[in-house]
Every structure is written in structure tokens, then in C-alpha cells.
Simulated assay, not measured.
Amino acid sequence: MGTQSVVDRFTERDWASGTDGTVRFALVGLGWWTVDVVIPAIEQSTHCETTALVSSSQEKADRLADRHDVDAAITYDDFHDGAATDTYDAVYVGTPNAYHLEYVETAADLGKAVLCEKPLEATVERSERLVEAAEAADIPLMTAYRMQTEPAVRRAKELIEDGFIGEPTHVYGNNTQPILEMNPDPDQWRLDPDVTGYGTSVMDLGIYPINTARFLLERDPVSVSARMDSSHEAFENVPDQTATYTITLEGDLPLVCTTSQHAQQDTQLKIIGTEGTIELAPAFHGEATLHLSSGSLRATVEDTDYGAVEEMREEFDYFADRVLSGESIRPDGRHGLADMRTIRAIHEAAERDEPVTI
């Protein structure tokens, strides 16, 4: 596959089944991501519609429902009680990590398909319960890895499969952001271990290079070594203000990652092979850009109009396409559970200061 083909087919929905129809969504958890990114993404989508908003505050749900012309506005308690179930077909769970389980369990009891944000839950054990609840109810469950439907990532995967880089030899990933500049509250949930889970940087940011590398290379983690540090007072309750870890993927392929919630924003993923290199930079927070290198070839493939909203639009339409067609979901619950086991192993390796087998 040549680079011109990548450019020409950049936004192609190679996953589309051609099915028709609409999936109506109840959005659970009305934080900034849901309001500023998810709702606009659904408005842009082909197969999705927001028909219910679910919040801890009835006033907030009513206000946002009126703003976005949504029919149903209910509280969390109403949702658990089965209110407004005739208004939606699927549930998007966008609450903080430690609350995913209860809403997926209720959605499963109600027979509704679920698109659940990543990481899947706060711990491996709770993630297992979440996946088992969905499987017992036989409902579709997708872990919300938007990078798997991001066009730059899908084109990169095609190039790798076509042999553009030859045999992969090394993978490097980084994902950092200044969380205290984004939200100066030291009591925010991402710094609360009871809500975020094992930590903050790997759970929230490090999961991106882990999962995107798994998707691109179709290799799973085998073992991991890691170092972590938390020196700023706001991070005193979590172990990973910064984290560095090396994952050995299947085939003895090293994936070296750095991540921090207290650094300048920077995202990249670089895959080096025997014949070429593919790099995503920026990679994980909108406007993913491909940098290609092989022999004398140097090329950059980007679409600067393709931001976070468009990434989520593709994710929602992919999920709806699978629900409507009945075809299998690639990043399902078991896929998300595998990442949770890897994240737990990263934290164990850092705590024990020795490699951990996954």
C-alpha cells in the first residue's frame, strides 16, 4: 500500500457494514467530556441519537436536556429504577472509573447495549464483575477505545499489515498532561484512589499507548517492569504522578512508555521496524497525525479538522453499526479487561521493583 492510498482513503469507514437504522442513547454521567465532546459527536453521527440524559442532579439533567433538545432527563436513582427505558436502546457510561460497574449492571438487567468508557473500572476484580454481568445478560458491551476507530490509527494498522515497516523491533509511547492546570482542584476524582483505581497517570493516560499498540500490532502484553514517583503534594494519595514502564509484547517486542499527569501535554506513539517507521504525533487527544519513514521516503498524513469530537463520532457510529448489524465488537469487555490486568501488573512491578508476568 502506497502513501497516496493512505491519503486518499484517510476517512474511509472500512468497518461499516452498510446497515441502516438508529441507536438511541442514554448518556450516564454528564461531566465535561460527555457535554462538550460526546453530545456533539452524536449530533454529527450517522446512526446515533441522544434521547436520555442521566445525572446525579435532576436540575442539571433538565437544563442540558432542554439545551440539546433531549426528551428524557432522569437521575441516577431513576435510571436504576428503570425509568424512561422506552426512550433509549443503549447506554453510554461516562462516570468516573469506580462507578462504571453499577451502571453497566443496571443496563444489563434492562437488556440495553453498553458503550463503557475506559479504563473499564477501578480494579481488575470490578472489571471482571462488569464483563460477567454483560455476558450473563447477553448484551453488546464495548470498551470505549476511540483510537481504534480513529482514521490515522486504522491507516497505520493497514500499513503495518502491508509490511511498510517490515518486522517491528521497538515501540515507544508517551502521554502526558498538566492535570492541575486543566483542573486546579487537588480533590478531583482522578487523584482519589477510591475512585480512580490503581493510580492516576497509567489508568488515565498510559492506557492509550498500551491499547493502541495492542490494536496496531495484534500482540498482547506478556510481562512488565515499571518505575513510579509522586512528589507533588496533590499526588500524595496516588503512586504515579509520573510513570515509566516497559511492556514485553508477544514475540519479545518491547513497548517502552512514559506518562505523567504533571507535565506539558505531549502524545506520541512510534513503531520502528526493520524497514521503516510509523509515528503518531500528536497521537491521542485529537488531530492524530501520521509520520511515515521508509528508506528515502518521508511523508506526513494529517487531517487537522479531525479532532476529539470526530474521533468520538466514529466510535459511536462503529458501536451503533455493530449493534444494528449484530456483528461482533472488536474492543469488547474482555479486550478492556486485558488492559486492566496489564495496568495492575504495571503498578505491582513498580511497587515490588521487579518484573511481573501478566
Score class of each variant (00 low, 15 high):
residue 226 A to I: 10
residue 238 V to P: 08
residue 203 M to A: 03
residue 210 I to C: 03
residue 261 Q to L: 12
residue 262 H to T: 11
residue 234 A to K: 15
residue 201 S to C: 03
residue 239 P to H: 06
residue 203 M to W: 02
residue 213 A to Q: 08
residue 254 P to I: 01
residue 200 T to S: 12
residue 216 L to G: 12
residue 211 N to R: 14
residue 199 G to W: 02
residue 215 F to C: 04
residue 252 D to K: 11
residue 218 E to W: 04
residue 235 F to M: 14
residue 211 N to L: 11
residue 218 E to Q: 13
residue 231 S to R: 15
residue 227 R to N: 12
residue 222 V to A: 10
residue 202 V to F: 02
residue 262 H to I: 09
residue 205 L to N: 10
residue 218 E to D: 15
residue 234 A to N: 15
residue 197 G to N: 01
residue 237 N to S: 10
residue 259 T to Q: 03
residue 215 F to D: 07
residue 251 G to R: 07
residue 233 E to G: 14
residue 206 G to M: 05
residue 204 D to Y: 08
residue 241 Q to L: 12
residue 220 D to E: 12
residue 202 V to W: 05
residue 239 P to E: 05
residue 223 S to D: 09
residue 216 L to F: 10
residue 220 D to Y: 09
residue 213 A to W: 08
residue 255 L to D: 00
residue 233 E to K: 15
residue 196 T to G: 01
residue 234 A to V: 15
residue 191 L to H: 13
residue 197 G to C: 01
residue 203 M to V: 09
residue 214 R to T: 08
residue 191 L to N: 12
residue 245 Y to M: 05
residue 232 H to Q: 14
residue 242 T to L: 11
residue 251 G to W: 06
residue 203 M to L: 05
residue 233 E to M: 14
residue 190 R to H: 10
residue 248 T to K: 08
residue 253 L to C: 03
